[in-house]
Simulated scan of single mutants.
Amino acid sequence: MMFQAQVKYLAAACVALSLLSGCQTVGKKPAINTAPLEAGQDPTKQFSLEGKIGVKTPKQSGSAFYTWQQDQDQFSIQLNGILGIGKTIIEGQPGQVTLDSSKTGLISATTPEELLERATGWIAPITYIIDWVRAQPATNEAELERDEQQRLIKINEADWNVDLSYADQDTLPNKLIMRQTYQSGEEIKITLLIQKR
């Protein structure tokens, strides 16, 4: 369970590391295990996403392309041109998350949130994105709104307001807009486009 929460923090690392980047193309995909699932494994936790992410905060903004591969409790995210550090690979398994690039070398942490803070100096509490991209709330406390087809279109959870959009009759979203507003009125806005699953 603890690592499931850690995996959810991975998206925060992807978002924050994308902040100051320009639009770059993604290179070769990281390898992912294609062996058949074993008994008890969740098929929804073996997926691949490609797309574009944009982040806007009161102090900075930017966008980048990403490739995210998930295989149960292991993940790999590849980013290019992030923060001017060239090709960047973020990988995780239970108890260890690493970020590696030619300019920064290897940075490691026990959680993606800790890694995010080391790499960028700030924390984005986007702890549930692995569920949101699958059109699911992460907790029972989430406030939800559905469309006429019963697809999830709004989530209010963990101080984040999430709008989900779908292409045609798809049951999984192709766009998520996540917003968090501080007491000062300042807002973080994250737009995640999923161009390929």
Score class of each variant (00 low, 15 high):
P30A: 03
E117S: 12
Q150K: 15
P58C: 14
I107D: 01
K59P: 02
P112S: 00
L17Y: 06
I82Q: 12
V162E: 01
S61K: 13
I126F: 13
Q169R: 09
T88I: 05
Q195H: 01
F75G: 05
G81A: 09
A31V: 09
P30S: 01
I77M: 07
E38W: 11
F65Y: 10
A31G: 08
T34P: 05
I90W: 01
P43Q: 09
Q183R: 12
K196I: 00
E141T: 08
L106H: 07
P30N: 00
N161W: 05
K29E: 15
Q46W: 05
S108R: 04
L19Q: 10
V26I: 12
L152H: 05
A158K: 11
V133L: 06
K87S: 15
L83Y: 10
Q74M: 08
K8A: 15
S18K: 07
Q41K: 15
D73A: 08
S108G: 04
V162R: 02
Q72E: 04
D71Y: 06
R179M: 07
E148A: 15
M1I: 07
Q74L: 13
Q6P: 06
K45R: 13
L193N: 08
Q149V: 00
L152F: 02
E157L: 13
K196Y: 04
G27D: 04
E145W: 15
S102P: 06
T181V: 12
A11L: 09
T67A: 14
A142V: 03
